[in-house]
C-alpha cells in the first residue's frame, strides 16, 4: 500500500518544528524584536495561496467572490512582506558594535 502524501507533509511539518525549536533558541535575546518582525514577513508566504486564488478567476469574470478574497489576501500579505522585511532591515542596520578606538 502506498503512503498517503499527507504523511510526507506531516513529516516535513514535524521536523520543521524541531528545526525551528533549535534555531530559535540560538537567537540572541537582543534580536528578539527583529525575530518577530522577520517571522511576520516570512509567514506571509501565505501569499502563494492568495495568488493561486486570485488567478483562478476565468477571463469573463476576473472578480468572482473567490478571486476577490484572493486579491485582498494578496494586498494584506504584501503589506506584511514588504513592511516586515524592510522594518527588520531598518532595525538590524542599527545594531552596531563598539567603534574601535582611534579610527
Amino acid at each position: 500500500m502506498e503512503i498517503d502524501p499527507f504523511i510526507f507533509r506531516l513529516s516535513i511539518f514535524v521536523l520543521s518544528i524541531f528545526v525551528g525549536y533549535y534555531v530559535v533558541w540560538s537567537v540572541t535575546p537582543s534580536l528578539h524584536t527583529p525575530l518577530m518582525s522577520v517571522t511576520n514577513a516570512i509567514s506571509s508566504v501565505i501569499i502563494v495561496g492568495a495568488i493561486i486564488a486570485g488567478l483562478a478567476g476565468n477571463s469573463e469574470s476576473v472578480f468572482n467572490i473567490s478571486s476577490s478574497f484572493g486579491f485582498l489576501a494578496i494586498a494584506l500579505a504584501a503589506i506584511n512582506i514588504f513592511g516586515g522585511f524592510l522594518v527588520t532591515h531598518r532595525m538590524l542596520a542599527m545594531y552596531k558594535k563598539k567603534k574601535k578606538e582611534k579610527k
Binding site: 507533509r9 516535513i12 528545526v19 502563494v48
Partner: peptide, 14 residues
C-alpha cells in the same frame, strides 16, 4: 505547499 508548511512550523515554534 512545503514552503508554507516549513514556515508555519518555524514561526509557530518561534
Amino acid at each position: 505547499n512545503t514552503a508554507l508548511i516549513i514556515t508555519g512550523a518555524l514561526v509557530g515554534s518561534s
